[in-house]
């Protein structure tokens, strides 16, 4: 898994590449925690290059979302595709979080 983050306006865009599984998901949580500690609490997560996510990945996503909410922040997602989209849909995460087709759409919502 690769994790890149970039500030765009008031939002932090996080691009995750590769696989979010039981082995790599804790890294997502850890790196997201560092961004929050730096005072950024408006997250846009771009999953366009994410090939795979499991329940362990969703657990990390939910944990980060709950922490952001406690800080009056938020999280939204864009570019969901393939099995990642299916996992979000089957788990109900698609109706729990704002999901956008493109990064531009997600940024426009900020």
């Amino acid at each position: 898994m690769e994790f890149e983050s970039q500030k765009q306006g008031n939002s932090t865009v996080i691009k995750v590449t590769g696989r979010m599984d039981a082995v790599t998901a804790p890294e997502f949580e850890e790196k997201s925690g560092e961004i929050m500690e730096a005072g950024n609490t408006d997250f846009i997560v771009d999953f366009g290059s994410l090939e795979y996510i499991s329940s362990a990945g969703l657990r990390s996503v939910l944990s980060v979302a709950k922490k952001l909410k406690a800080k009056q922040g938020g999280i939204r997602f864009c570019n969901l595709d393939g099995m990642v989209q299916e996992v979000f849909s089957v788990s109900g995460f698609s109706s729990m979080f704002p999901i956008f087709d493109t990064l531009e759409d997600a940024l426009a919502e900020g």
């Binding site: 499991s54 329940s55 362990a56 969703l58 657990r59 939910l62 979302a65 709950k66 909410k69 996992v87 089957v90 788990s91 109900g92 729990m96 979080f97």
Partner: peptide, 15 residues
């Protein structure tokens, strides 16, 4: 369930 009440337990087996 809304985010506040969501718990990930059982989701793996559900998948």
């Amino acid at each position: 369930a809304p985010m506040e009440d969501r718990n990930i337990g059982g989701l793996g087996i559900f998948f």
